[in-house]
Nucleic acid binder design. Sequence first.
DNA 1: ATAAACCTGTGTGTTAGACACAGGTCAAGG
DNA 2: CCTTGACCTGTGTCTAACACACAGGTTTAT
Lengths: 153, 153
Amino acid sequence: MRVNQLAKNLNITGDTVRFYTRIGLLSPAKSSVNGYKDYSDKDQSRMQFILSARNLGFSVDEIKVIFSRTDQGESACGLVRQMIQQKLEETEKQFEEMVKLRRKLSNAVEDWSHKPDKAPTGNMICHLIEGTYAESSQLEANREASMTPSLED
Amino acid sequence: MRVNQLAKNLNITGDTVRFYTRIGLLSPAKSSVNGYKDYSDKDQSRMQFILSARNLGFSVDEIKVIFSRTDQGESACGLVRQMIQQKLEETEKQFEEMVKLRRKLSNAVEDWSHKPDKAPTGNMICHLIEGTYAESSQLEANREASMTPSLED
DNA sequence: ATAAACCTGTGTGTTAGACACAGGTCAAGG
DNA sequence: CCTTGACCTGTGTCTAACACACAGGTTTAT
């Protein structure tokens, strides 16, 4: 079957199939008649596997590692169990980051509701944003204590 | 001051400063003696603003828009208030996605704990992953009802 | 003068595809 | 047989926000 047929079967775009072919995760035969790529049912299974793995947050490189095992007939299940455990931890961290960002944003909205607009000056672009904290920096270290409550975190 | 001095002042890398210079958000003078870029205090303020904005989740393109106003002496505060409101909504959506992913992952870990490892076959790479759901697809639509509880969502 | 240490700008790599595009292929119509 | 148009193909380039590599210039110490 050709690229767009496979794509349609799995409800994805031809570009996606081409991408995974380009990076070597799919290796279709080349039609001798017109040089078009000819995908087998196994290719479709592989593509389906890729989609499932991506859906769980696995990266392409991680999928490559999995294939490097299974393509030699070895089971990848042990490896996959390890990987997903690690992925769960990463996700937990990112989750915390999201929570922080969300709080930062709503704090800013709240805080700004009491402040007026201002025109920019030489070294002040928009006091609303500048009033928020941005990473520990030399500047911060040297800044005198402000009356404005910090939005950090 | 030169690139690395500015970087040190703000506790970032020289590469970061070079990046923002390259895309035109910073426009240092060129030293006539050696051609090195010469950053002013205003450049440092701009860089600090960029850091604060990035810290709130603003993209470089959004920062460009803000600068395009303030560089003409107009206040960007109104614009910024709008933008942050929108950003808060986007963050909310991403947050939901994180929650979903987290649940998917822990469901998988839980589910897999009852399943054995298996060697790959022609169209089965790792049954653990394949047992999870991956986007509504033609395949899914055609799949017979399984005894395995779906991990979707 | 010369060697070492440090600095600079620029080119390239990174994710996971999306988009553009020149050219090939195919069925219908003349 | 030829042509028109629709559809398809592979490949090159773009994305965000930097990080890294590297050849070559500069500064400092000897």
